[in-house]
Amino acid sequence: MKQKLEQIRAAAHEALAGELNLDALEQLRIKYLGKKGEITAVLKGMGKLTAEERPVIGALANEVRSQVEGMIETKKAEIAAKIEEVKLKAEVIDVTMPGRAQERGELHPLTKVMNNIKDTFIGMGFEIADGPEVELDYYNFEALNIPKNHPARDTQDTFYVSDNVVLRTQTSGMQVRVMEKQKPPIRIIAPGKVYRSDAVDATHSPVFHQIEGLVVDKGVTMADLKGTLEMFIHRLYGDETRVRFRPHHFPFTEPSAELDISCFKCGGKGCPMCKGEGWIEILGCGMVHPKVLANCGIDPEIYSGFAFGIGLERIAMGKYDINDLRLFFENDLRFLRQF
């Protein structure tokens, strides 16, 4: 019997070494391990053995059985792997064919740039304010030290709704609205649409966007104005961008400045983009005029502040190299998809 078992072991080993398919493997399993299989038969014949032989042969029979079982399992796994391999080979596809993409929409480029600017100022402790686009003459002009008949009104061709109501020509009125409601320290930006009666062309639109900024606190200096806006510019355009503050005039700030940056196209050497000047005008700013503070009930002897106004379209045009302002309002999908 011992011999028989060794024979079975050897035969099974040999049979399982060859090429087999799953059916042939199943036949082998039945042949050795099935109810009528050879090992089963040996185990069934155990009764005829002596008491001394039985445990020895029994142990051997179990050993052979588990060996054969193991060999069959291994073989089965091998065959399965081969089948899988063949199947996978047949499943080859052209991975260079286009993917099945879901088209995602995008924010308008003006929103993208606006978000960028908001993030920078939020990081510096600013909040965001919103206000009316149809505005009282008082907020748009009067409270900003631009009385009726002031020549500065000429430079802003105003749409009127009535003698006292205008479409705001600037977001600067938000300075006054915020200061009336909120006491210092104030750090806000107020983005929004503004209106000027300019005919539409590549660089003019009767509707465009500004972002007003306002800081009021004790001891705010012009050096703070410079530092804050310089940081903003560096965040927006990179640290290598040079910034210059050039004296200018706005009725509601004093001193006033325009902020130029080194041309983002030529880096300051002079090119058609910057009209050969090497500088591009980005925003207007200044120390809040004491009269404006006083108009809002803030004592200019105690508090000081600075304000700035950024033209959103100009920034976006520079950032994305957009050459025609009209594109922003045409909303051609072929344009919108580019951002």
Partner: peptide, 14 residues
């Protein structure tokens, strides 16, 4: 004119 950053009471931007 030097460039400085805002000092004074901190405000929470949000």
């Amino acid at each position: 004119i030097p460039t400085t950053l805002l000092s004074g009471e901190a405000t929470c931007g949000r």
